[in-house]
Design a protein around this nucleic acid. Structure first.
Length: 577
DNA sequence: GCCGTTTTCGGCCCGACTGTTTTCAGTCG
């Protein structure tokens, strides 16, 4: 069983324990154990075999044994017994906003409801409102939650969330009462998907700001409205939270609501070790600490908060509660890649395969963005559903690209490439001769997704070892929120790329965003170069590069680790090796 | 269930908002 499935089961156990009314800290231990498993970069099986699983913070003896059992057998008696003791419908009810484990238990014990349909009926018949701790409002809220459960539970692509958040942030900044405003949460951290939107505002007059926010035109429901916090649900189902704080607290609030939760816990623990209590409102000496200063310094930036705790500034993208505090303490926070560092991108499509724009339209757009070069990599013939190019059509496209470059009509240089299919046995889809005519070759899997992990890994490694291959396209073929990637041993792929000096792509398309950011630090440590590639199927798609930069930043990547920060000449030299 | 510069027990981040209550529990992030 793979890491993500193990983590999911640990989270399920946490939910079941909650529903059983178990100790809250035990529940938290399972939740943090799940996050710890997700965050493991090594191969889980290898780690277990080496007996090093419990060296991971958050995984002790008991969790370690359960994780090992799950990983090796795919089953866990403890989990099965737990599941059998709780009606499945109760677990589903956890998805209803405002309903937590305790209230679900109360309803279950008082009315005997075991499924959402029964809860729905009990609400409509007014039975829930009569229970102790419940009333008319909770009953109505539960009914609304049941109706909208599907839309409310959804996560959103970072790109879509950002497009929703940007006009709201601009609107906040335009209000006369607003001194400062920022978005926070997973959007600011650049997570590949975002659950809800968070905004933090500095203002001494919160009421008009709250009124503006809750009065936005596409608000479906106001779920909370107070002096410092309001929450709304947009018609799209997306939830947005707004916090308004006085100017002096802005950076504490911004830091707090940027998270992540794990990062905040680490920061607060660090503060406590030093005799201070950190919250979204500020930092104060803990009572009973003898040498606490009489007055606290004003910390007017996020940088100052980190500095006060003896840490270098940690960019939001790195605040995932992994090793960022240790790095900030020892001065090892990288100087992260910036969008402006990009001088071009390599993996893009035109109307020759399944793109929507011509070569000229694509290169014009790249020039407007300010890029020095643009790589064209249309599909190869095995991707017939995408109108992939055979040797003959590719040869014609190469001539066309050389002619455009010779014309002098564009300042941006075109590189001729291809996105060549990796056939099920690992061979490439096109003749070596035509591949040799190209500037570079992206190799990608587009078929036979059902292969075993072993077969898929061997297949991709064979393609990486092909001397014609320059870089590996979207590593697992995942489509965020739609389709899991195929099974592949990422660690072995990274090793093969390092050994063969091949580039791995950060596919910047908002539904892909892979190789996943969680693997990049170790890949870069082993010397693997990254290419940020928008996989654009239209000229607008070139702008996706921004999402790729963000994901690369989450992977701790610096400018030096990214091929497309190099000049055209340097890239030509790299391709010619 | 995890963890240890208060180290094998006794803690475990902290606060806002809601709805139901008359002082607070539950939920959420």
């Amino acid at each position: 069983m793979d890491k993500n499935s193990v983590a999911e089961i640990l989270n399920n156990i946490a939910v079941l324990l909650e529903l059983k009314g178990e100790n809250a800290f035990k529940i938290r231990a399972y939740q943090s154990g799940a996050r710890a498993v997700e965050g493991i970069c090594d191969d889980l099986g290898d780690l277990i075999e080496a007996g090093k699983l419990t060296e991971t913070p958050g995984i002790g003896k008991a969790l370690g044994e359960k994780i090992a059992t799950l990983s090796q057998t795919g089953e866990l008696e403890y989990y099965d017994n737990l599941k059998a003791s709780v009606p499945a419908g109760l677990i589903e009810m956890m998805e209803i906003p405002g309903l937590g484990a305790k209230k679900i238990r109360a309803v279950h014990e008082a009315l005997g409801v075991e499924a959402i349909e029964e809860l729905d009926r009990a609400c409509r018949e007014g039975e829930v409102a009569g229970l102790p701790g419940f009333g008319e409002k909770s009953q109505a809220k539960i009914l609304l939650g049941i109706r909208n459960r599907e839309a409310y539970g959804k996560r959103h692509l970072w790109w879509d969330a950002n497009n929703t958040a940007t006009p709201i942030l601009e609107g906040l900044l335009n209000l006369p009462e607003v001194e400062r405003a920022e978005h926070a949460g997973s959007l600011r951290r650049g997570r590949e998907t975002v659950g809800d939107l968070d905004f933090v505002v500095a203002s001494s007059r919160p009421a008009p700001v709250m009124d503006w926010f809750t009065g936005l035109p596409n608000v479906a429901e106001i779920t909370a409205k107070g002096e410092t916090k309001s929450s709304i649900r947009l018609e799209s189902g997306m939830q947005a939270d707004l916090r308004v704080v006085p100017g002096g607290q802005f950076h504490f609030a911004l830091h707090h609501f940027t998270g992540s939760k794990d990062h905040n816990v680490m920061m607060r623990q660090r503060a406590l070790q030093r005799g201070f209590s950190l919250s979204e409102w500020g930092i104060t000496p803990v009572k009973g600490i003898a040498d606490a200063p009489a007055s606290m310094p004003a910390l007017a930036t996020e940088e100052a908060i980190f500095e006060f705790l003896g840490l270098a500034y940690i960019p939001p993208e790195l605040r995932e509660g992994t090793e960022e505090l240790a790095a900030a303490e020892s001065g090892e926070i990288p100087r992260l890649l910036e969008e402006e560092d990009l001088k071009g991108v390599f993996h893009n499509h035109t109307i020759a395969s399944d793109g929507h724009n011509t070569l000229e339209e694509m290169v014009q757009e790249a020039e407007d963005i300010g890029w020095e070069y643009l790589g064209i990599a249309d599909h190869s013939k095995a991707s017939f559903q995408a109108n992939g190019l055979d040797e003959e059509r590719l040869a014609a496209q190469i001539s066309e690209i050389r002619a455009i470059n010779a014309s002098g009509n564009f300042r941006t240089h075109l590189f001729a490439g291809v996105e060549c299919d990796i056939l099920p046995d690992g061979r490439l889809d096109l003749d070596g001769a035509i591949l040799g005519e190209l500037d570079y070759v992206v190799v990608s899997v587009h078929s036979s997704f059902q292969q075993s992990e072993e077969a898929m890994t061997a297949r991709i490694i064979r393609a990486i070892e092909n001397p014609r291959a320059t870089m590996l396209g979207h590593l697992t073929g995942r489509l965020l929120l739609r389709r899991e990637g195929y099974a592949v041993n990422v660690d072995k792929i990274i090793d093969a790329a390092a050994a063969n000096r091949k580039v791995i792509e950060m596919n910047a398309h908002p539904v892909r965003l892979e190789m996943d950011w969680r693997h990049w630090k170790r890949a870069a440590d082993r010397g693997v170069l990254c290419a940020i590639n928008p996989d654009a199927h239209s000229k607008e798609g070139l702008r996706y590069a921004r999402a790729g930069v963000l994901a690369a930043r989450k992977g701790w990547l610096e400018k030096e680790g990214v091929l497309n920060t190099r000049s055209r000449l340097e890239v030509e030299e790299f391709f010619a090796r």
